[in-house]
Computed example of a mutant assay.
Amino acid sequence: MEYAYDPKVGKNLTVDEYKTQHGPKLDARGNVRWRPKLRCLVCNVPLHTVGEDNPTVVPTWGHDPSPGTFCPIKSGGSERYEILPPTEADPTKGAQLRASFFANWEAHWGYIGSVVLYPDIFTFIGFIRSADKKGLWTQRHLEEWHLPYVCLATCDFPPPKGTIAARRPHWLRFRFNDRYRTLRDLWIEADQEFSFLQLTYRKPLRKKEPGPAEFIAADHVRVDRHWLDATYPPPNTFAIAAMESAFRA
Rank of each mutant, 00 (worst) to 15 (best):
L136P: 02
R225V: 06
T200N: 01
I121T: 12
A218P: 03
Y201N: 01
I128A: 00
P233L: 08
P233A: 14
M243S: 03
L199V: 10
T231E: 15
L228R: 09
S130L: 12
R129M: 08
V221M: 07
A166P: 01
E244G: 13
R167F: 12
W171Q: 08
I216M: 12
H220M: 03
I164W: 05
K203I: 01
F174N: 04
F238T: 10
P159V: 11
R173F: 09
E214I: 10
K134E: 15
L142W: 00
E189C: 07
F124N: 02
T163Y: 12
I128K: 00
K203C: 13
K208G: 01
D219M: 07
A165H: 13
K161R: 14
E143N: 11
R175F: 12
W137M: 03
D191C: 05
F176I: 05
P159D: 09
D191S: 14
T138S: 15
E244M: 11
D185G: 12
L186K: 08
M243V: 13
R129F: 07
L228Q: 12
Q192L: 09
Q139E: 15
V223Y: 02
D132S: 06
F215C: 02
L147T: 01
R168P: 13
I240K: 13
L172D: 04
Y232S: 07
I240V: 15
F157L: 10
R206N: 14
Y180K: 03
D229H: 12
T182I: 09
A242N: 05
R181C: 08
K133N: 14
P158K: 13
F176L: 10
L199Q: 11
P160F: 07
S245V: 10
S245N: 12
A165F: 06
W145P: 00
R167K: 14
R129I: 05
T123G: 09
R173D: 02
K208A: 15
G126Q: 04
P233Q: 05
E193Q: 13
E189G: 09
C151N: 03
E244W: 00
L183H: 04
L147C: 02
G162M: 09
